[in-house]
């Protein structure tokens, strides 16, 4: 891509990433949440790949990392559910203190679940993007 595209991408990419994190962390208070925020976070990665391009080794490395993060996100989510089972004998029990409504640190396990979902969705969508933009490495595998 041209210099203009690269420069703009490097300026706004960070802001997109930050906005995604904002959407995730305020998932229990405002519209949005883990899924929407995860999509925005994945969008910032996609923007960087589109602007700066990639080669085979870079793609391989990115895909490896994305697949690990995807599994970690899902395990984190199901781990929260299992914690409820072990601590309170109910699957998905909200075992943390709920706090006051409309505060950032409230709603018990729900912000944690949102973070887990955002990791899963962000990494998953980014690896879908890499697979759809399939270059040599994927076709050979």
């Amino acid at each position: 891509m041209s210099l203009i595209v690269r420069k703009i991408a490097s300026i706004i990419g960070g802001f997109i990433f930050l906005y995604g994190i904002y959407i995730v962390l305020h998932g229990h208070l405002t519209p949005g949440g883990g899924f929407a925020g995860g999509v925005i976070i994945a969008g910032s990665f996609v923007l960087f790949v589109l602007a700066y391009g990639t080669d085979e080794s870079g793609e391989k490395k990115r895909f490896f990392i994305a697949s690990i993060f995807e599994s970690i996100g899902a395990l984190f989510f199901i781990g929260i559910a299992f914690f409820g089972l072990f601590l309170g004998s109910l699957f998905f029990l909200n075992f943390l203190p709920q706090g006051l409504p409309l505060k950032l640190l409230s709603a018990g396990t729900i912000p944690l679940s949102n973070i887990a979902i955002s990791i899963k969705v962000g990494a998953g969508l980014f690896s879908i993007f890499l697979a759809l933009a399939a270059t040599k490495y994927f076709l050979e595998e």
Partner: peptide, 23 residues
């Protein structure tokens, strides 16, 4: 019965453990 969610939670957990541990 506390074991009821295990029917779908165990295979789900397995599905996401397998890609990490098999590395």
């Amino acid at each position: 019965m506390n074991l009821l969610p295990l029917f779908f939670a165990l295979p789900l957990a397995g599905a996401f453990l397998i890609p990490i541990l098999s590395k």
